[in-house]
């Protein structure tokens, strides 16, 4: 407050902003301000739906359908939230989603990492054939297979079970492809040294390779977790028992049951959106890296 000389915009202090001098002449402050305004406008438009949902959820039920729409009602209330939470289903679905997403993430990452490590470091006869088959799996559009997959799950007795939701989601050939590249980059000398000391392959994997690849493992884990948490199509196909539904499926099931209770519907929506937004705030860097890595096929 008492430092009037402090520059108000971050141009002088920011690191990645040292654009060379001549450019400044052609893009004066005005250009930067325009860019900022444009970015802010888009941000506002993008935030609008969730802000409107939040505003609706905090209104008394009777005032949600005021027309023309108003941002505020006569009072701010959490009634819709207590009502939605007291019905209980939301909590069950939240727990189911968490269970499914954690299980999918753990199984996917560990089995993919094991396979990737073998493909990177542990030669055996037939390995190249197996790798080719694995890579071919990347191009299989899993959603298109739901009908035969459902038929198969019925034969296996996995319809309406947790395993039925989880297992078809854990096969991730692309993950093997990505992790293999990272494991190949681990210096061989470290592994050789451990081997001379008598460490088995499993021990080398867990104590040397995995810790060294922690950043990429964190990134892909969060990426898998988000995908599993938000997956709709497969859980929707395989579950009909409400007590086994994940959050997206359960909500879809009751979306119409809310009827004209828009405050409650929006309260449920806000609550269901919250967990991953919070996770994003905590793991922003890993998520950005995860998207960049998994989205662009590694590297």
């Amino acid at each position: 407050m008492s430092a009037p000389t402090l520059p108000l915009d971050s141009t002088t202090s920011s690191r990645d902003d040292r654009r060379p001098g001549p450019v400044r002449l052609f893009t004066p402050r005005l250009g930067r301000v325009c860019m900022w305004v444009a970015a802010a406008l888009i941000a506002f438009v993008w935030l609008l739906p969730m802000l409107w949902a939040l505003a609706t959820s905090l209104k008394p039920e009777a005032e949600t359908t005021a027309y023309p729409p108003e941002w505020t009602a006569s009072r701010v209330t959490g009634e819709a939230y207590t009502e939605v939470l007291s019905q209980g289903d939301l909590v069950v679905w939240f727990l189911n989603s968490t269970l499914v997403a954690v299980a999918v993430t753990v199984i996917t990452v560990i089995t993919s990492a094991w396979a990737a490590y073998a493909f990177a470091r542990l030669p055996f006869r037939g390995r190249n054939v197996l790798y080719a088959i694995t890579i071919a799996g990347i191009i299989v559009p899993a959603n298109v297979l739901v009908v035969p997959l459902f038929q198969q799950m019925r034969i296996m007795g996995m319809v309406d079970t947790y395993w039925g939701i989880i297992l078809p989601q854990v096969v991730a050939p692309a993950m093997v492809f990505i992790l293999k590249k990272f494991f190949e980059a681990v210096p061989r000398e470290l592994e050789d040294a451990a081997e001379v000391d008598g460490a088995g392959r499993s021990r080398i994997f867990w104590t040397i390779v995995m810790p060294l690849c922690r950043p990429i493992l964190a990134a892909v884990s969060i990426f898998v977790f988000i995908g599993a948490w938000n997956n709709f199509f497969w859980p929707f196909i395989i579950t009909s028992d409400p007590s086994l539904m994940t959050l997206p499926v359960g909500l879809a099931n009751v979306q119409n049951a809310f009827g004209v209770q828009y405050a409650q519907m929006m309260a449920a929506a806000v609550l269901a959106a919250l967990p991953l937004v919070l996770i994003f705030l905590f793991f922003q860097r890993q998520i950005v890296r995860g998207v960049a890595t998994a989205g662009l096929g590694g590297n």
């Binding site: 969730m50 979306q255 929506a269 991953l276």
Partner: peptide, 10 residues
Amino acid sequence: LVPVTVVTMV
């Protein structure tokens, strides 16, 4: 990051 059902509800 928002589940599709939340998107469509909103």
